[in-house]
Nucleic acid binder design. Structure first.
Length: 612
DNA sequence: GTTAGGG
DNA sequence: CCCTAAC
């Protein structure tokens, strides 16, 4: 009644509450949590499944090529590549378990490879890859075959390489395989089993759905990233681009159609994020297109052993000596991203946007800087206009840097003699604008896709660069992609933490806090006044459709806090003060819609109120 | 995918 | 802002 009183007494008489009845949902009760499979337990399996899929894809790709046998040999060689063990420690950490293929020659073979390669544990901070799923069903390779079909479909759509050219194909495969070579801490010679407690292999049908999401990080977790960053295509390899630029959006549509299938379990997203982060923290990255990358060498002292050969170099050495080859991945791909930001956006928001994009893929540990005309823009509060970023004349000199986050000094899980990791002052990877024409589809722009010198893996033996080929397209005001230039320091990005100290960074990065401005509050209040509580999606669409960073859950939460704020004394309120008038409206609307909710027959009640 | 509510 | 259950 207090609230009701406020409705009448706070001067809201002028407001006409619309008649939008909404039945209250039945009381929600929380039952015991139903955890079928622990996320941690799924984690490794999913990754392995993805690995297996990737490998099979590669294998099938090889089969389709004219040089099948050789390719297969290569694949096999890679798959069976052995990484020399670096320390006794690691030996202890890993327990080799024989993998028992289930059925299907090919998949079994690939699976074995995948499992061999897939031991991304290597550290005892990762949960064992024992799956406790009790579910029964089809053998896992069956499901993965289905996944692989999807992968193949992707390939046909141009996500991956053209196989017509054997050379290119090989190059592509190498490139795509390259990231699969996990970091030097990864044991490629360690077999991995996945069994339940009874020693049976579980059913992975559940994983099949999740598997797809690996390729679409922009769909994972944060919707705003999906909004802001439009997936364009996955760039498999700079060498393979000439055939299929992978039509913009074209590659994504099928997945959107499958969204319901892919994402009907919200937890899957989180799990994936979690897992990806987990991997990431350990130095392995699952890129959005399913590639597996490793930035290990960034933090790896193995270079001292003189074995940090690039993938290309390794290829040659494979036949000569097919064992104990150490892998060092010097680059991996990030999907091209479309970033839309208004000109009035602040530099800080731009940084965040880019950061979110990168984070979605890399899992964090990086800081994005904005460089214009060679000078770093440090003031996050400046708008793009103020900074000259929106100026067409200057846009060519815009660049981004990816730098190690100074707050996340990596802890190297490496031998003691390891040199200290890079400091935040180590050279960033500089992303700068390519001279490529803006009228051309940036995806197929040679300037864009030609790998910069940095990409010459073999020539950069000293480089510890992890990301050397990041494509970020900025379409505002015009389409011109950003390509990386040489990092100032070979240690660029090496700060990508293998493992974080102290704070638990296993979970997906928390979204940045963005306090609601008064104008936002006003918009929210207005929307709720008209639409009522409980229709947050509509509220979002009504008043915050263009605020990509505000989800309807955010709005709901904000309303919740607004109601609370309005009901406490001004002295107790914190943060930017909300005008009392707004708070009054909050209480009024809240009271109004609250009284409408309890009854299903709110309509007639509403009508009475309306006519009163 | 949305909504409600606890954390 | 996150997480989860319920829908």
């Amino acid at each position: 009644m207090v609230l009701k009183k406020s409705v009448h007494n706070r001067g809201t008489a002028g407001f006409q509450f619309p008649v939008i009845p909404r039945a209250r949902r039945s009381a929600r009760r929380r039952g015991p949590r139903e955890k079928i499979i622990d996320a941690n337990q799924i984690c490794a399996i999913e990754l392995l499944a993805s690995l297996a899929g990737k490998l099979l894809q590669e294998s099938e790709s090889s089969s389709a090529s004219s040089n099948a046998s050789e390719d297969n040999n290569n694949n096999l060689a890679i798959g069976k590549g052995v990484v020399k063990r670096e320390s006794q420690d690691e030996d202890k950490l890993l327990k080799a378990e024989p993998f028992v293929p289930i059925s299907g020659k090919e998949s079994a073979c690939i699976s074995e490879q995948a499992f061999k390669m897939g031991d991304i544990r290597g550290r005892d901070d990762v949960k064992p890859i024992t799956c406790k799923s009790k579910s029964n069903g089809q053998p896992w390779d069956y499901n993965h075959r289905r996944e692989l079909k999807d992968v193949e479909q992707m390939e046909k759509k141009g996500h991956l390489c053209n196989r017509q050219s054997t050379k290119k194909s090989e190059q592509c495969r190498l490139n795509s395989l390259a990231p699969m070579s996990l970091d030097s801490k990864t044991r490629l010679d360690t077999k991995l089993g996945c069994r339940d407690d009874d020693g049976n292999f579980p059913n992975y049908s559940r994983l099949s759905k999740k598997f797809k999401t690996f390729r679409h990080p922009q769909s994972v977790g944060d919707r705003r990233i999906r909004k802001l960053l439009t997936f364009k295509h996955w760039k498999a390899s700079p060498k393979c681009r000439d055939q299929e630029p992978a039509k913009i959006y074209g590659g994504r549509q099928p997945f959107y159609r499958k969204r319901k299938v892919c994402f009907n379990h919200e937890r899957s997203h989180r799990d994936l994020l979690y897992k990806r982060r987990k991997l990431f923290d350990r130095g392995s990255v699952v890129t959005s297109d399913g590639f597996y990358s490793s930035e290990s060498m960034a933090n790896s002292p193995r270079k001292a052993n003189g074995v940090s050969a690039s993938i290309l170099a390794r290829q040659n050495s494979f036949r000569a000596e097919d064992s104990h080859v150490k892998f060092s991945i010097k680059s991996f791909k990030i999907p091209e991203l479309l970033i839309e930001v208004p000109q009035t956006a602040t530099v800080g928001s731009l940084k965040r946007t880019v950061m979110e994009a990168v984070t979605a893929i890399l899992g964090g540990g990086l800081r994005v800087g904005v460089v214009l005309e060679g000078k770093k823009i440090r003031d996050d509060s400046r708008t793009l206009v103020q900074s000259g970023i929106s100026c067409k004349d200057n846009i060519d000199t815009l660049g981004f840097t990816l730098e190690p986050n100074s707050m996340q000094v990596p802890q190297i899980a490496a031998p003691k003699e390891d040199p200290p990791l890079l400091s935040p002052h180590d050279g960033p990877l500089l992303l700068t604008r390519s001279p490529g024409g803006s009228d051309v589809d940036p995806v197929i722009s040679n300037a864009l896709l030609d790998p910069p010198p940095l990409m010459n893996l073999g020539n950069n033996a000293e480089s510890n660069s992890v990301i050397s080929d990041v494509l970020i397209e900025k379409t505002v005001p015009e389409s011109q992609a950003l390509v990386p230039v040489l990092p100032v320091s070979p240690r660029a990005l090496s700060a990508v933490p293998l493992k974080q100290k102290g704070r638990c960074t296993d979970m997906a990065q928390r979204r940045i806090r963005r306090p609601f401005s008064v104008s936002e509050v006003e918009a929210l209040v207005q929307a709720v006044e008209e639409l009522g509580t409980g229709r947050w999606r509509d509220v979002k669409l009504y008043a915050f459709e263009n605020a990509g960073y505000r989800t309807y859950v955010d709005l709901k939460d904000k309303w919740k806090t607004l109601v609370h704020t309005a009901s406490i004394s001004p002295q107790q309120r914190r943060g930017e003060p909300v005008p009392q008038g707004l708070l009054d409206r909050v209480l009024s609307a809240h009271a109004y819609w609250s009284q409408c909710q309890p009854k299903q027959g709110g309509k007639s009640q509403l009508l009475k109120i309306e006519s009163a």
